[in-house]
Protein backbone atom coordinates (compact mmCIF):
# COMPACT_ATOMS: atom_id res chain seq x y z
CA UNK A 1 0.00 0.00 0.00
CA UNK A 2 1.07 3.54 -0.68
CA UNK A 3 0.41 6.31 1.82
CA UNK A 4 -0.34 9.77 0.54
CA UNK A 5 -2.00 12.97 1.55
CA UNK A 6 -5.04 13.80 -0.53
CA UNK A 7 -6.62 17.18 0.14
CA UNK A 8 -5.18 17.10 3.62
CA UNK A 9 -6.36 13.58 4.41
CA UNK A 10 -3.97 10.75 5.05
CA UNK A 11 -4.98 7.95 2.76
CA UNK A 12 -3.55 4.75 1.40
CA UNK A 13 -4.04 3.15 -1.97
CA UNK A 14 -2.68 0.16 -3.79
CA UNK A 15 0.49 0.40 -5.79
CA UNK A 16 -0.12 1.18 -9.44
CA UNK A 17 -3.19 3.31 -8.81
CA UNK A 18 -3.29 6.63 -10.57
CA UNK A 19 -4.16 9.85 -8.80
CA UNK A 20 -7.40 10.05 -10.76
CA UNK A 21 -8.45 6.60 -9.60
CA UNK A 22 -7.43 7.46 -6.08
CA UNK A 23 -9.49 10.63 -6.06
CA UNK A 24 -12.48 8.88 -7.57
CA UNK A 25 -12.17 6.10 -5.04
CA UNK A 26 -12.37 8.65 -2.26
CA UNK A 27 -15.37 10.26 -3.86
CA UNK A 28 -13.66 13.29 -5.31
CA UNK A 29 -14.83 14.18 -8.74
CA UNK A 30 -12.29 15.26 -11.33
CA UNK A 31 -13.39 16.17 -14.85
CA UNK A 32 -11.87 14.24 -17.73
CA UNK A 33 -12.15 14.28 -21.48
CA UNK A 34 -9.53 11.91 -22.80
CA UNK A 35 -9.83 9.26 -20.13
CA UNK A 36 -11.83 6.06 -20.22
CA UNK A 37 -11.66 3.29 -17.70
CA UNK A 38 -11.31 0.62 -20.31
CA UNK A 39 -8.44 2.30 -22.10
CA UNK A 40 -4.90 3.21 -21.26
CA UNK A 41 -4.20 6.65 -19.84
CA UNK A 42 -3.14 9.26 -22.33
CA UNK A 43 -2.87 12.60 -20.55
CA UNK A 44 -3.77 14.79 -23.49
CA UNK A 45 -6.84 16.79 -22.55
CA UNK A 46 -5.26 18.25 -19.41
CA UNK A 47 -8.65 18.67 -17.71
CA UNK A 48 -7.89 16.24 -14.93
CA UNK A 49 -5.19 18.49 -13.48
CA UNK A 50 -4.25 18.15 -9.84
CA UNK A 51 -1.64 19.96 -7.83
CA UNK A 52 1.16 17.87 -6.37
CA UNK A 53 4.02 18.73 -4.09
CA UNK A 54 4.28 20.87 -0.99
CA UNK A 55 2.67 24.33 -1.15
CA UNK A 56 4.99 26.88 -2.68
CA UNK A 57 6.88 24.29 -4.66
CA UNK A 58 3.94 22.52 -6.20
CA UNK A 59 3.17 21.90 -9.84
CA UNK A 60 0.20 20.74 -11.89
CA UNK A 61 0.04 17.28 -13.40
CA UNK A 62 -2.61 15.25 -15.17
CA UNK A 63 -4.02 12.90 -12.55
CA UNK A 64 -4.98 10.25 -15.09
CA UNK A 65 -1.34 9.51 -15.84
CA UNK A 66 0.30 10.22 -12.52
CA UNK A 67 0.94 7.14 -10.39
CA UNK A 68 0.38 7.30 -6.66
CA UNK A 69 3.67 7.72 -4.82
CA UNK A 70 4.65 7.31 -1.22
CA UNK A 71 4.35 10.55 0.73
CA UNK A 72 2.96 12.56 -2.17
CA UNK A 73 0.91 15.61 -1.26
CA UNK A 74 -2.00 16.01 -3.66
CA UNK A 75 -4.64 18.69 -3.85
CA UNK A 76 -7.48 18.41 -6.28
CA UNK A 77 -9.38 21.64 -5.93
CA UNK A 78 -7.13 24.66 -5.72
CA UNK A 79 -7.51 28.07 -7.26
CA UNK A 80 -4.55 27.43 -9.50
CA UNK A 81 -6.19 24.31 -10.90
CA UNK A 82 -9.50 26.07 -11.36
CA UNK A 83 -7.87 28.92 -13.25
CA UNK A 84 -5.99 26.65 -15.61
CA UNK A 85 -8.98 24.39 -16.10
CA UNK A 86 -11.36 27.20 -16.91
CA UNK A 87 -8.92 28.54 -19.46
CA UNK A 88 -8.73 25.10 -21.04
CA UNK A 89 -12.49 24.80 -21.18
CA UNK A 90 -12.70 28.21 -22.78
CA UNK A 91 -10.19 27.04 -25.37
CA UNK A 92 -12.23 23.90 -25.96
CA UNK A 93 -15.35 25.99 -26.45
CA UNK A 94 -13.52 28.24 -28.86
CA UNK A 95 -12.39 25.24 -30.86
CA UNK A 96 -15.14 22.71 -30.79
CA UNK A 97 -18.41 24.22 -29.56
CA UNK A 98 -20.64 21.56 -31.06
CA UNK A 99 -19.65 18.94 -28.53
CA UNK A 100 -22.26 18.37 -25.91
CA UNK A 101 -19.62 17.08 -23.51
CA UNK A 102 -17.74 20.33 -23.77
CA UNK A 103 -20.86 22.43 -23.41
CA UNK A 104 -21.71 20.50 -20.28
CA UNK A 105 -18.24 21.09 -18.89
CA UNK A 106 -18.55 24.79 -19.60
CA UNK A 107 -21.82 24.82 -17.73
CA UNK A 108 -20.40 22.89 -14.82
CA UNK A 109 -17.38 25.15 -14.45
CA UNK A 110 -19.23 28.34 -15.24
CA UNK A 111 -17.32 29.32 -18.31
CA UNK A 112 -19.73 31.80 -19.82
CA UNK A 113 -17.77 33.68 -22.42
CA UNK A 114 -15.30 32.84 -25.15
CA UNK A 115 -12.68 35.50 -25.74
CA UNK A 116 -10.91 33.74 -28.59
CA UNK A 117 -11.76 33.71 -32.25
CA UNK A 118 -14.41 31.06 -32.73
CA UNK A 119 -13.51 27.95 -34.68
CA UNK A 120 -15.65 24.97 -35.47
CA UNK A 121 -13.47 21.89 -35.44
CA UNK A 122 -14.99 18.52 -34.94
CA UNK A 123 -12.07 16.86 -33.26
CA UNK A 124 -10.21 17.72 -30.07
CA UNK A 125 -7.57 15.05 -30.63
CA UNK A 126 -8.23 13.38 -27.31
CA UNK A 127 -7.08 10.14 -28.89
CA UNK A 128 -9.93 8.09 -27.39
CA UNK A 129 -10.98 6.70 -30.78
CA UNK A 130 -7.44 5.66 -31.62
CA UNK A 131 -7.00 3.86 -28.32
CA UNK A 132 -10.47 2.33 -28.60
CA UNK A 133 -9.69 0.98 -32.04
CA UNK A 134 -6.36 -0.40 -30.90
CA UNK A 135 -6.94 -1.59 -27.37
CA UNK A 136 -10.57 -2.70 -27.34
CA UNK A 137 -11.22 -3.55 -30.97
CA UNK A 138 -7.72 -4.79 -31.76
CA UNK A 139 -8.00 -3.23 -35.17
CA UNK A 140 -5.47 -0.40 -35.25
CA UNK A 141 -7.31 1.00 -38.23
CA UNK A 142 -6.79 4.62 -37.31
CA UNK A 143 -3.97 6.59 -35.83
CA UNK A 144 -2.73 10.08 -35.14
CA UNK A 145 -0.75 11.61 -37.97
CA UNK A 146 1.35 14.76 -38.30
CA UNK A 147 2.27 16.97 -35.41
CA UNK A 148 1.56 20.29 -33.76
CA UNK A 149 -1.34 22.23 -35.15
CA UNK A 150 -1.55 19.84 -38.14
CA UNK A 151 -2.18 16.78 -36.03
CA UNK A 152 -5.25 14.77 -36.97
CA UNK A 153 -6.83 11.35 -36.73
CA UNK A 154 -6.60 9.41 -39.95
CA UNK A 155 -6.30 6.01 -41.54
CA UNK A 156 -2.92 5.06 -43.00
CA UNK A 157 -2.18 7.25 -46.02
CA UNK A 158 -5.74 8.54 -45.84
CA UNK A 159 -6.97 5.46 -47.69
CA UNK A 160 -9.82 3.27 -46.59
CA UNK A 161 -8.37 0.94 -44.03
CA UNK A 162 -8.43 -2.81 -44.56
CA UNK A 163 -8.38 -3.21 -40.81
CA UNK A 164 -11.56 -1.27 -40.14
CA UNK A 165 -14.55 -3.50 -39.44
CA UNK A 166 -16.93 -0.55 -39.19
CA UNK A 167 -17.51 -1.45 -35.57
CA UNK A 168 -18.30 2.12 -34.66
CA UNK A 169 -16.23 2.01 -31.51
CA UNK A 170 -14.55 5.22 -32.48
CA UNK A 171 -17.81 7.04 -32.91
CA UNK A 172 -19.18 5.63 -29.72
CA UNK A 173 -16.36 6.93 -27.62
CA UNK A 174 -15.90 10.28 -29.28
CA UNK A 175 -16.75 13.18 -26.97
CA UNK A 176 -16.79 15.70 -29.77
CA UNK A 177 -17.55 14.48 -33.22
CA UNK A 178 -20.53 15.73 -35.15
CA UNK A 179 -21.93 12.28 -35.71
CA UNK A 180 -22.75 11.74 -32.08
CA UNK A 181 -23.05 15.13 -30.66
CA UNK A 182 -25.66 16.99 -32.60
CA UNK A 183 -27.70 16.39 -29.54
CA UNK A 184 -31.44 16.00 -29.29
CA UNK A 185 -33.09 18.13 -31.93
CA UNK A 186 -36.45 19.75 -31.98
CA UNK A 187 -38.03 17.59 -34.62
CA UNK A 188 -36.46 14.47 -33.28
CA UNK A 189 -35.63 13.76 -29.65
CA UNK A 190 -32.75 11.48 -30.52
CA UNK A 191 -30.20 12.61 -32.98
CA UNK A 192 -30.28 9.40 -35.04
CA UNK A 193 -26.69 9.79 -35.95
CA UNK A 194 -25.89 6.60 -34.11
CA UNK A 195 -28.42 4.55 -36.04
CA UNK A 196 -25.86 3.28 -38.44
CA UNK A 197 -23.95 1.69 -35.63
CA UNK A 198 -24.71 -1.89 -34.91
CA UNK A 199 -24.57 -2.39 -31.17
CA UNK A 200 -24.19 -5.98 -30.05
CA UNK A 201 -27.56 -5.90 -28.33
CA UNK A 202 -29.45 -5.51 -31.58
CA UNK A 203 -29.81 -9.25 -32.17
CA UNK A 204 -30.06 -10.42 -28.65
CA UNK A 205 -30.40 -8.28 -25.59
CA UNK A 206 -27.67 -8.84 -23.11
CA UNK A 207 -27.24 -6.34 -20.30
CA UNK A 208 -23.56 -6.77 -19.75
CA UNK A 209 -22.67 -6.20 -23.33
CA UNK A 210 -24.64 -3.09 -23.99
CA UNK A 211 -22.30 -0.14 -23.78
CA UNK A 212 -24.62 2.46 -25.20
CA UNK A 213 -26.36 4.77 -22.82
CA UNK A 214 -28.96 5.76 -23.86
CA UNK A 215 -29.00 2.79 -26.20
CA UNK A 216 -30.43 3.89 -29.47
CA UNK A 217 -31.04 0.41 -30.70
CA UNK A 218 -32.87 -0.69 -27.58
CA UNK A 219 -34.97 2.40 -27.58
CA UNK A 220 -35.93 1.77 -31.17
CA UNK A 221 -36.73 -1.85 -30.34
CA UNK A 222 -38.82 -0.80 -27.39
CA UNK A 223 -40.76 1.64 -29.50
CA UNK A 224 -41.60 -0.93 -32.10
Amino acid sequence: MINMILNGLEISVEKGTTLLETANFYGIEIPTLCHDEGLSSYGACRLCLVEVGPPGRSWLVSSCTYPAREGLVVRTHTRRIARARRMLIELYLATCPSSKTIQDLACQFQVTAVRFRQRHDDCILCGLCVRMCDEQMQAKAIGLVDRGADRRVATPFDKKSEQCRLCGGCQYICPACQARCQGPQEENPICNACLNLAPPCLEEYEDAMCYMDPCVACELKGNN
Partner: peptide, 10 residues
Protein backbone atom coordinates in the same frame (compact mmCIF):
# COMPACT_ATOMS: atom_id res chain seq x y z
CA UNK B 1 3.57 25.82 -33.06
CA UNK B 2 5.31 23.80 -35.75
CA UNK B 3 7.42 21.82 -33.34
CA UNK B 4 4.85 20.97 -30.68
CA UNK B 5 4.01 17.30 -30.94
CA UNK B 6 0.36 18.24 -30.65
CA UNK B 7 -0.51 15.57 -28.13
CA UNK B 8 -1.58 17.69 -25.24
CA UNK B 9 -4.32 20.19 -25.80
CA UNK B 10 -2.94 23.04 -23.75
Amino acid sequence: KDESCGKCFS
